[in-house]
Design a protein around this nucleic acid. Structure first.
Length: 96
DNA sequence: ATAATGACTTTCA
DNA sequence: TTGAAAGCCATTA
């Protein structure tokens, strides 16, 4: 299941994001399993893990531990965040 | 084999 | 709009 999840994430184009649930629906597993796969990712991975956020358009990492880093990486690609730290999935969301 | 654990989601209050 | 509660299901222990 990891390979399938990684494959989908790897297919997400720059400047776009996808939710855990979307990935789960595509590979046919639960949404939590997607997060589980990301947690097991090495630090030096080339996978665009930061393009994965939750269904409400928010980052699922706790502040002070990756949250800021992910937001920065996304903004770096042109993804805009609202005042309350959310991403508009209607505009930046990606559907294969 | 069994039970616990979540980088989640959806469904109501 | 917010938050608790109940689903979810592969990985860990």
């Amino acid at each position: 299941t990891y390979p399938q999840i990684y494959a989908v994430i790897n297919a997400v184009p720059e400047g776009r994001v996808i939710s855990y649930g979307e990935i789960a629906k595509i590979v046919g597993c639960g949404a939590r399993q997607v997060g589980y796969a990301l947690r097991a990712l090495p630090q030096d991975t080339k996978l665009p893990w930061f393009r994965v956020i939750n269904s409400s358009g928010k980052i699922s990492l706790p502040k002070g531990n990756g949250y800021e880093r992910q937001q920065q990486l996304l903004e770096q690609e042109g993804v805009e965040f609202t005042l309350n730290g959310r991403v508009d999935l209607a505009r930046f969301g990606w559907h294969g």
